[in-house]
Design a protein around this nucleic acid. Sequence first.
DNA 1: GCGCAAATTGCAATATTATAACATTTTATT
DNA 2: AATAAAATGTTATAATATTGCAATTTGCGC
Lengths: 161, 161
Amino acid sequence: MASPTAYARHDHHRCIDDALLAARRICKTQGARLTTLRERVLAKVWQSHRPLGAYAILELLAEDGEGHPAPPTVYRALDFLQEQGLVHRLSSLNAYIGCDSPGQPHDSQFLICRHCQVTVEVASRKVSEAVARCAEAKDFNIQHSNVEIVGDCPNCQKKAL
Amino acid sequence: MASPTAYARHDHHRCIDDALLAARRICKTQGARLTTLRERVLAKVWQSHRPLGAYAILELLAEDGEGHPAPPTVYRALDFLQEQGLVHRLSSLNAYIGCDSPGQPHDSQFLICRHCQVTVEVASRKVSEAVARCAEAKDFNIQHSNVEIVGDCPNCQKKAL
DNA sequence: GCGCAAATTGCAATATTATAACATTTTATT
DNA sequence: AATAAAATGTTATAATATTGCAATTTGCGC
């Protein structure tokens, strides 16, 4: 199992660039409008592999100088990005993170490090299936599932925190 | 698979009574103090099989007439109840629900109906194991996992909503 | 029972996250 | 260019949660 990029030293500019390119491609094919603002918000979300709160995004946007949007603006952009499957919301943190594999619908789980906050998205068929069976067994019809796993990432384990 | 109590017509007073009895027993053995306030909060949480927000609990307490606690009071009681494993917090709803099988530590998942909000706690070994394997595969050390599944409960499916 | 320390609760203020309502601007299309 | 729809701006406020400190209650040793 290759270690997720997020845990390794890597050229993060590439993560950002890839995310923006994918977003443009997806929005184009969907006929959705990836405006400047939305793209700026997406870029901020992708500034790291840590989930970012709406107000943190707001501050980062303000630092750019190009306009100081108000909360509704950011929330609307985030709503749009979620609808397009470009970002996920982590409800246990009230924060947002870029989607790892946008475009195709997928069921994902999140590994959230409680020390460094680095968060990795995984798409485990085993987990998805187990969840599906578990719901079926109770005659429950799944619309959406949210799996957030909190613990220690490999890096932080090494640091013996 | 027996249908969960929450979905069936049942004597709900018994759910409340059982929860309170179990809570007293558990706190006693743990040397934890289940005060009047904490017990009142627990009773409110158990008033239904729907998750309840902190401010909703606050209002219910106020209706009783016996003092109108302020938010911190309720949040502290909820923190205590969570520490004792007597209630769970559903982060996707910012709401709290009574624990189904308090006492022993357990890994649970929640089936949340998007129509009637009735929420059932399940403890699927398959899901727990799949989650554990998925984390292991990324060399991630789980501290806690949160699985919230949103969809249509059996009753609401029948009503064809 | 009495006094002390610790735990709990009360209380006021405030922080944080999110949305409502409506005005304005931008965009795509005619 | 005119229009309608979409997006953004703006102001205010709602909903959720916490901080800090004072007052009270409780458990416990004496």
